[in-house]
């Protein structure tokens, strides 16, 4: 997979330090499943955490802590979860939400040529998938907050370039864009958005159901 659009450096740092909520963490992890370069960048960012853990001041443990933990070493561990071996085109971190195959997603039509599937997570940020027909344009929209879009299949283009499978558009709230799907095949993508703090006006309010919020 030839990934051209990667995670923002600030996102890598937030993911490594544990600051992303579940919706965004799933999108990031799904990109990582497809992108060795960003996996390496995350590991480097985790080394920062290791270094700061090492340099942190210590807080004395309870007096019997060592004794207690040693006593627990022989208790049986829960069985390790193995990576899903079932074949499919869905990246591993997304499979526990939608299963292994994109063909099995229960789409709902939300506008002509645009289908959506909402994914329930424990976080407040909406997470959903979009299935956009070939040649179709999503109306120009800004965001109430950050938006992260990972392409799973097909491709679209906007002012930021061409986005194909594995590419991620990691955008903050100031970016407005109007993606147009390439002719020939639909574009399937995974999207996390921050819950918007404000609605800009009637147009964006009308767009909310379309872009998923």
């Amino acid at each position: 997979m030839n990934v051209l659009h990667h995670l923002d450096d600030a996102t890598i740092l937030r993911y490594a330090s544990g600051d992303l909520d579940e919706a965004f963490a799933v999108v990031v992890a799904s990109h990582l499943a497809m992108c060795p370069a960003c996996r390496r960048a995350v590991r480097l960012a985790e080394e920062l955490g290791g270094s700061l853990l090492e340099d942190t001041e210590e807080t004395a443990l309870a007096p019997r802590a060592l004794e207690q933990v040693l006593a627990r070493l022989d208790t049986p561990a829960p069985a390790p979860r193995l990576a899903e071996a079932e074949p499919g085109d869905v990246p591993q971190p997304l499979r526990r939400y939608i299963g292994p195959r994109l063909d099995d997603v229960p789409w709902k039509t939300v506008a002509p040529g645009i289908r959506r599937h909402r994914i329930r997570t424990g976080s407040a940020s909406p997470l959903y998938m979009l299935h956009i027909g070939p040649g179709k344009a999503v109306p120009e929209h800004g965001h109430g907050g950050a938006e992260m879009t990972l392409i799973l299949s097909g491709a679209y283009s906007d002012a930021l370039g061409r986005f194909g499978p594995g590419d991620i558009a990691d955008l903050d709230e100031h970016v407005e864009h109007q993606p147009r799907v390439e002719p020939g095949a639909p574009c399937i993508c995974l999207v996390a958005t921050e819950r918007p703090t404000r609605f800009k006006g009637l147009v964006s309010r009308l767009l909310q159901p379309l872009v998923g919020i």
Binding site: A37, A83, Q92, P93, S123
Partner: peptide
């Protein structure tokens, strides 16, 4: 929250024999 996305990425890395080849 959920650390599962992290665990899934870890499981993927472990599934490949080498740590992503040179890159990893």
């Amino acid at each position: 929250g959920s650390a599962r996305p992290y665990e899934d990425v870890e499981a993927l890395e472990l599934a490949s024999d080498t740590p992503d080849g040179e890159e990893g």
